[in-house]
Structure formats: structure tokens, C-alpha cells
């Protein structure tokens, strides 16, 4: 076994290996497609409230969150790297403990609330087309943010910045 004491290049080797690990965290095609579908389903909630009173609004929300967790589980299986949310850690340390990709995750949450609110106001004024456009833009923004989140996580893996 090689001895790192005579080989300070070990740190450089570790950087290369971390790069290799980060490169594994590329989302498969179904991940972003599935995310887009999950967000699209989530953003139909406001329409169901107004036009389909029989469809449960909260049921839609829970279904899209469940799909999102399922996608995270699939991504973990496919890449061999678990970086998703840790509900137990949230309970222990609160929502705002350090995690790689947190800015993008917060932005996703804010966009989700903003789109929901915009849809609510637009539908109240009878602007159905505008509400649909808001939903489409929301889905696009969420998918872009999800990619940004993964990019941030990859960068953290490269830098070792995710280490707590």
C-alpha cells in the first residue's frame, strides 16, 4: 500500500476522485421529465379548486410531493449517491441547517408559493389563459431550479463543501 507521507500528491488525487464522484450525479432523462410532471400536477391544484371541486386539492399536493420523493429515491438508486432531503435532520436541527444546494432549494419553495398565489389571483379575476401560462412558466422555472440544485450539489461534492 502506498504511503501518503511521501506523496503529498494525495490531496490532488482526492480532488480528482471527488470530481469523478460528482460527475456521477448527473440526472437520468426520467428524473427531470418526472419532476416536470410532478410540478405540473402540483400546479393544477388551483384549477381543481375552482373548476373541479370534487378533486381533493390537498390530495393533489400530497401526490406531487410523493412523486418528488419517489424521484429522489430513484436518483439515489441510479447514481449511488444519497443527497436528498433528510426529514429526521430537519426535525432535529430545523429547516435551515447547512446543506449543499440550499439556495436553489429555497428558490424552488419560493417559486412554488409565488406561482400558487399568482394562479389564485388570476383565476379569481377570470384570467384562465394567464393562469395556465403562469403554471407553464412555473413548471419551467422549477425544472431549471432543480437542475441548479443538482449543479450546486455537484459543486459541493467537488469542493468537499458539503462536509458538515
Amino acid at each position: 500500500m502506498r504511503d501518503v507521507a511521501r506523496n503529498p500528491v494525495a490531496l490532488e488525487l482526492l480532488r480528482v476522485q471527488r470530481n469523478r464522484l460528482a460527475d456521477r450525479l448527473r440526472p437520468p432523462w426520467w428524473y427531470l421529465t418526472g419532476s416536470a410532471i410532478a410540478w405540473a400536477v402540483g400546479f393544477t391544484g388551483q384549477f381543481s379548486l375552482r373548476y373541479l371541486p370534487r378533486v381533493d386539492y390537498w390530495g393533489i399536493g400530497i401526490a406531487s410531493v410523493a412523486v418528488w420523493f419517489l424521484l429522489q429515491w430513484g436518483l439515489t438508486r441510479a447514481t449511488g449517491i444519497k443527497v436528498g432531503p433528510r426529514p429526521l435532520r430537519v426535525l432535529r436541527d430545523g429547516l435551515f441547517y447547512y446543506r449543499p444546494g440550499r439556495p436553489a432549494a429555497i428558490a424552488m419553495f419560493v417559486v412554488c408559493l409565488a406561482v400558487g398565489e399568482a394562479q389564485f389571483l388570476l383565476l379569481r379575476h377570470g384570467l384562465l389563459a394567464a393562469a395556465i401560462a403562469a403554471a407553464v412558466l412555473g413548471v419551467a422555472a422549477e425544472v431549471v431550479l432543480q437542475q441548479a440544485w443538482l449543479r450546486e450539489v455537484r459543486q459541493a461534492l467537488r469542493d468537499g463543501g458539503g462536509a458538515e
Binding site: M1, R2, D3, V4, N7, A10, L13, L14, Q17, R18, L21, A22, R24, T76, T79, G80, I81, K82, V83, G84, R86, P100, V153, A156, L157, R158, G160, G161, G162, A163
Partner: peptide, 22 residues
């Protein structure tokens, strides 16, 4: 030893769990 340094360094990079093959 460099192999164990690699293993620990990769596990400390930020992921919660890393699979054997990865």
C-alpha cells in the same frame, strides 16, 4: 494509507450515503 484516505475523503465530500459501486 492512500486507499483509506480516498474512501474517507469521498465519503466526506457532502453526500449522506454513497453506494459501494459509486
Amino acid at each position: 494509507p492512500i486507499t483509506r484516505l480516498s474512501i474517507c475523503g469521498l465519503l466526506a465530500a457532502g453526500a449522506d450515503w454513497v453506494e459501494f459501486a459509486a
